[in-house]
Simulated scan of single mutants.
Amino acid sequence: MTLPAIDWAQPWLAPYRADGEAAARAVAHGDGSVATALQRIRQASAPDFVRQEALPAGQAYEAHIFQTRTVPTRDNLHDFFNGLVWLAFPQAKRRLNELQAAEIARDGIGATRGALRDALTLFDENGALLDAPPALWRALAARDWHTLFVGQRGLWREARLLLFGHALLEKLVTPRKPITAHVLLPVHGETGPAALDDARVAAALDPLRLEHKPFVPLPVLGVPGWCRDNEAARFYDDPQVFRPLAGRGIPGP
């Protein structure tokens, strides 16, 4: 496999850059297998990465990971980023897998996932974590985009947004303004750097809480420093991307 060009200097890739560049080199100079490349750089806390053929026909992907502690991996960008998140957040990813596997064991695989599996999948694919001052959290929860990104722009120097979802990271290889993350709301209003810690994230993944989808949408290219165009305030005058809460004129995402 040949990976597409990835701009590792992009700010949203900073948490994954060291492992990502190492894995990309391993893909390029090894046998071309993403699983082999990830396995070469994995730490003891991460699962083993195996080729997709290791997943038996008819076996649920999440159930297989739970039972074997191995991650079947295809040779594509989606699974490449999934592996990088496993390396960076092994406890949180394992917690997601445990919850998915328990739901599958209870209900099987059906046409619909159910509220909990929907929330688990949403966070796994498109989730993000935010450490930010309370004023930014209030503006984000209210979808008050002008306050969040213009009026309180200076506060972003005290904030850190970390993208967790591997599908989200994949989409941002080709950045587009509408790309939106689902930010996990803090537990009991707790914020600070610990909110981005692997163990704390895993502990926050409580099934009863997740069933209520405790997420708020955030168009990631609105983050100061993440897109040159957003230096102009008019960047945010786009109601198809920066949507207000439902009931304020345009339905929210």
Rank of each mutant, 00 (worst) to 15 (best):
E125Q: 07
G127T: 03
G127R: 01
A128W: 04
A128L: 06
A128D: 03
L129P: 04
L129V: 00
D131P: 09
P134M: 02
W137S: 03
A139T: 06
A141P: 01
A141R: 13
D144N: 14
W145C: 04
T147I: 01
T147G: 11
T147Y: 04
T147R: 09
L148D: 04
F149V: 03
F149I: 05
V150N: 08
Q152V: 02
Q152W: 10
R153G: 11
R157E: 15
R157H: 15
R157C: 08
A159T: 13
R160A: 13
R160M: 10
L161N: 12
L161P: 05
L161R: 15
L161K: 14
L163Q: 12
L163D: 15
H166F: 13
L169F: 14
E170F: 09
K171N: 12
L172D: 10
R176L: 11
K177E: 03
P178G: 07
T180M: 09
T180I: 09
A181W: 07
V183G: 00
V183E: 08
L184D: 05
L185V: 04
V187W: 09
V187H: 04
H188L: 15
G189Y: 05
E190G: 11
E190Y: 08
T191Y: 10
T191N: 14
G192L: 09
P193C: 10
A194S: 14
L196E: 10
D197S: 13
D198M: 12
A199Y: 12
A202M: 05
A202S: 09
P207R: 08
P207Q: 11
H212Y: 02
K213A: 06
P214T: 00
P214F: 00
F215L: 01
V216G: 00
P219M: 06
V220E: 03
G222I: 02
V223Y: 11
P224M: 12
P224Y: 10
P224R: 13
G225D: 08
C227G: 00
C227F: 10
R228N: 04
D229S: 12
